[in-house]
Simulated assay, not measured.
Amino acid sequence: MEIPVIDFDELNDEKRRKTMELLHQACEKWGFFKIENHGIDKKLMEKVKHLVNSHYEENLKERFYESEIAKALENKGNNSDIDWESSFFIWHRPTSNIDEIANLSEDLRKAMDEYIAQLVKLAEKLSRLMCENLGLEKCFIKEAFSGSKGPSVGTKVAKYPQCPHPQQVRGLREHTDAGGIILLLQDDQVPGDQVEVLSNGRYRSTLHRVMANENGSRLSIATFYNPAGDAIISPAPKLLYPNHFSFQDYLKLYATTKFSDKGLRFESMKKMADGHYNGLT
């Protein structure tokens, strides 16, 4: 089964409506999708991957295979719960820690900064499209994520090395794709599952794993566009069901609107509960 593919070029022509519907379905039913023609410089993407791989080979590979993780793999049976990865985390916004990470080349630092600037623009564009599909103000998600300092942006760089016993380690997250970008709304390990909460459960988070490989290694450069630490996350009021109404009032409305769209009926109940009911339009 192929995952949904969202072509951003089709947002600018007669296919826009169909593409927006596909995006909406992908968010509701899948929780992840691939983006094509995303606007991120592909040469820059390849440069970042090349530099990250070089950093691993020069600074992390030998240390990983000598680590307690690698040693534990030889001493445990098939039921082990080993997290087979070599990783580090770069914070970009609101403050950066990239200068504090040992042995990162100047080329990698500059390339990563440029890449993240483009990726943030993509995340904000996508958040506006999601808001449009949900019937929210276009800046709702960005503003909800902002807190006092703006959204939090960080990248987990993970290398899943060649594994001699892949059946003995747990599945791992993977966010890479040749030339494209795989987007997960929120992996369910991220505290709060923020998009799911903001959308009142309409856009669900997803659990995503990839297994270790005995024939080669995998690279994941997973950037997270998250709320600020002090951002308060709650469902968008516009997406909540009507509340604080009597069942008798609902029955009266239903009797006159039973052939109407349920969404319109709920909107009318919201207005009724707020004392502003003027009937269905």
Rank of each mutant, 00 (worst) to 15 (best):
M1R: 11
P4Y: 05
V5T: 08
I6H: 00
I6R: 02
I6D: 00
F8N: 08
D9Y: 11
D9A: 14
N12D: 11
R17M: 09
T19N: 10
L23R: 05
L23C: 09
W30H: 13
W30G: 10
W30N: 14
K34F: 10
N37K: 08
H38F: 08
D41F: 08
L44S: 06
L44R: 10
M45V: 10
K49T: 10
K49R: 14
H55W: 07
Y56M: 07
E57N: 13
K61Q: 11
K61R: 15
E62M: 07
Y65I: 08
E66N: 15
E66S: 14
A70Q: 03
K71C: 01
K71H: 10
A72G: 12
E74Y: 14
N75E: 15
N78K: 12
N79W: 10
S86D: 06
F89C: 09
H92W: 13
S96P: 05
I98W: 08
I101H: 06
N103M: 09
L104R: 01
S105W: 07
L108R: 04
D113C: 03
Y115W: 14
A117M: 04
A117N: 07
V120M: 01
K121Y: 00
A123D: 10
K125N: 13
G135W: 02
L136P: 00
L136M: 01
K138W: 01
C139Y: 03
K142E: 07
S152W: 03
G154L: 02
G154N: 01
T155E: 06
T155R: 06
A158S: 15
A158Y: 03
Q162K: 15
P164N: 04
Q167M: 08
V169P: 03
V169R: 03
R170L: 14
G171F: 00
L172W: 05
R173S: 09
D177N: 06
G179M: 05
G180P: 00
I182H: 05
L183S: 01
L183N: 00
D187I: 02
D188N: 12
Q189D: 13
Q189M: 08
V195W: 01
S199P: 01
R209L: 12
V210S: 14
V210F: 10
M211F: 13
E214K: 15
S217W: 13
R218A: 09
L219T: 11
I221C: 07
A222M: 07
F224I: 08
Y225H: 11
Y225N: 02
N226R: 11
P227C: 11
A228E: 07
A231T: 03
I232A: 13
I232Y: 10
I232W: 07
A236M: 06
A236L: 06
L240E: 15
N243V: 09
H244F: 07
H244P: 00
Y250G: 04
Y250M: 13
T257I: 03
T257P: 01
T257S: 15
K258W: 09
F259K: 14
D261I: 06
K262H: 11
R265S: 03
S268T: 06
M269H: 09
M272R: 13
A273K: 04
D274V: 00
N278D: 12
G279I: 01
L280G: 02
T281L: 09
